[in-house]
Design a protein around this nucleic acid. Structure first.
Length: 495
RNA sequence: GGGGGCGUGGUGUAGUGGUCAGCAUCGGUGUCUUUCAAGCACCAGGCGCGAGUUCAAUUCUCGCCGUCCCUGCCA
């Protein structure tokens, strides 16, 4: 039984796209489900699109998401390093390997040198279009003799190497999610395999690398489906086994277009910085294009690995639905370990200026309580700052007419007086105090129910809604409560 | 234009030659709670169109339409 090996092979052209993360995830899930290996390879054969630092970003995003790979490209001490027995794992370091196979292909007569200039190619295509023909390489250099080609090369002429596809041949292949597919070679171009800069094209590199790295399952986006025949043909003339193909449906935005920056966040780091939990993003993403046998919606990574299979991957492109993501992520937030959640929330609270390093050191439990009280109502962690705002300004301003009217009740002065009296009795607000305070105010004033609770709430927070009053009091503490009551008395109850 | 893929509520999806096409999310309503959120309950909303096969089609076949991808010395 062959060792199952899968790879995720992004190009370092920028941030990791949310669709790319899902591709990586499905690769990872299947590899782990099968007890196989998962590999990260970098496909940097297009020098013009190379972005400095992109490899590091890609890896950081994968790490954050909890997608672990066994071989390939890693970051160690801030440096890009490679680990594994099938390296190099960065394509630009494998040029000599590709050259070897290009030579072999030429030798076998399955590829040929082409000297057509970009201009001539453009002209040909233009002409074909005008005539209503299919734009396609016209095979101008296809029958050049090897001797002539070599002579021109030695004279320094620029060239590429093209795949010599046979005419009118049906190429069949099987895809796990799409079934059997047949494409005729007449509908495919003599693909460039080696570019004039000496770098291979994707089509060449992917076949060679996947074979040499022992990849058993090729799992990638469906945009590659039309290219598979070229790859299959290469496998054939090279005499290699064809791996299992799995072409994933696209992740789309609301307009059914490919996810793009214009329509909101698409980079994994955007979700990272908004405070989505990796567990939430991963959980949600797994569900766009795959479904379990039962109706389970909430998954841990372990559960996903156990339940995942390509047989249940959908054919249809799915729209990335931020609402559902929020629901899934909110679920994870509410069930997260509180200390861990607090650790994740602290940077946002600090950034917003609500807490500082001293608070973190001296009032950790207070911060934790605050996180605990507001976690119920948020979908991602950065939302926490607006939720905790009510705890930080003692100059209470009613949020709206409704809240203001709560303060106008006849009984409000008496309620606040009673509250102050009770506060005099204690050093600091504790659980015992919060538990009994409202009842004691009720006894002292005779006011009860909404008439009691709502004005108290507004006096303490300015809002007619929010977390439980007991939690609010605990978080505020004696001095802040006093300050707020006095501020209310001063500004809203006089006159 | 050519080739290929895809088409179940707004969204993600399940499923079937014949029971009310299931679940989730979103929206609405109710319930709980002093309020909000969460939770719970309920409501609303769907098989792209047209033929054909069949006693019967969302399901099978064909055509159409729509949509996406490829048609690059990008990946």
């Amino acid at each position: 039984m062959k060792q199952v090996r899968l790879r995720f092979a992004p190009s370092p052209t920028g941030y990791l796209h949310i669709g790319g993360l899902r591709t990586a995830l499905y690769n990872y899930l299947f590899a782990k489900h099968s007890g196989g290996k998962f590999i990260l390879r970098i496909e940097d054969t297009d020098r013009s699109r190379y972005v400095e630092g992109a490899i590091e970003d890609l890896i950081e995003s994968l790490n954050w998401a909890g997608i672990k790979y066994d071989e390939g490209v890693f970051i160690e001490d801030g440096k890009v390093v490679e680990r594994g027995d099938y390296g190099p794992y960065i394509q630009s370091k494998r040029l000599d390997i590709y050259q070897k196979y290009v030579d072999l292909l030429i030798e076998q007569g399955d590829a040929y040198y082409c000297f057509c200039s970009k201009d001539r190619l453009d002209e040909v295509r233009e002409e074909q279009k005008v005539k209503g023909l299919i734009p396609k390489y016209d095979g101008f250099c296809r029958s050049l003799s090897l001797d002539e080609a070599r002579e021109r090369i030695s004279e320094g002429e620029e060239y590429v190497v093209r795949l010599k596809l046979p005419h009118n041949r049906d190429i069949k292949f099987h895809d796990v999610v799409r079934g059997d597919i047949t494409i005729n070679t007449e509908d495919i171009d003599d693909q460039v395999l080696l570019k004039s800069d000496g770098y291979p094209t994707y089509h060449m590199a992917v076949v060679i690398d996947d074979h040499l790295m022992g990849i058993t399952h090729i799992v990638r986006g469906e945009e590659w489906l039309s290219s598979v025949p070229k790859h299959v043909y290469l496998y054939e003339v090279l005499g290699w086994d064809i791996p299992v193909f799995v072409h994933l449906p696209t992740v789309l935005n609301k307009d059914r277009k490919k996810l793009s920056k214009r329509h909101g966040d698409v980079a994994v780091e955007d979700f990272m910085s908004k405070g989505y939990l990796p567990e939430g993003l991963i959980n949600y993403l797994a569900l766009v294009g795959w479904s379990p046998e039962n109706n389970q919606e909430i998954f841990s990574m372990e559960e996903l690995i156990k339940a995942f299979s390509f047989e249940r991957v959908a054919k249809t492109g799915g729209i990335f639905d931020i609402n559902k993501l929020n629901w899934v992520n909110g679920h994870h937030i509410r069930n997260y370990d509180l200390d861990e959640l607090t650790r994740l929330a602290i940077p946002y609270l600090k950034e917003a200026g609500y807490i500082d390093d001293r608070d973190i050191k001296e009032k950790y439990n207070w911060i934790k309580t605050m996180v605990e009280t507001v976690r119920e109502g948020i979908s991602y962690i950065s939302e926490i700052t607006e939720k905790v705002d009510i705890f930080f300004n003692n100059k209470i301003e009613p949020e709206d007419e409704n809240a203001l009217s709560m303060l106008k009740g006849q009984q409000v002065p008496a309620i606040l007086d009673a509250f102050k009296e009770e506060l005099k009795e204690i050093e600091e607000v504790d659980e015992e105090f919060t538990k009994g305070i409202m009842k004691r105010i009720q006894r002292a004033t005779g006011v009860k129910g909404k008439d009691l609770f709502m004005p108290t709430r507004v006096a303490l927070t300015g809002n007619s809604h929010g977390p439980e009053l007991t939690s609010i009091m605990y978080i505020l503490g004696k001095q802040n409560i006093l300050a707020r009551i006095e501020y209310i008395e001063e500004n809203f109850l006089k006159g």
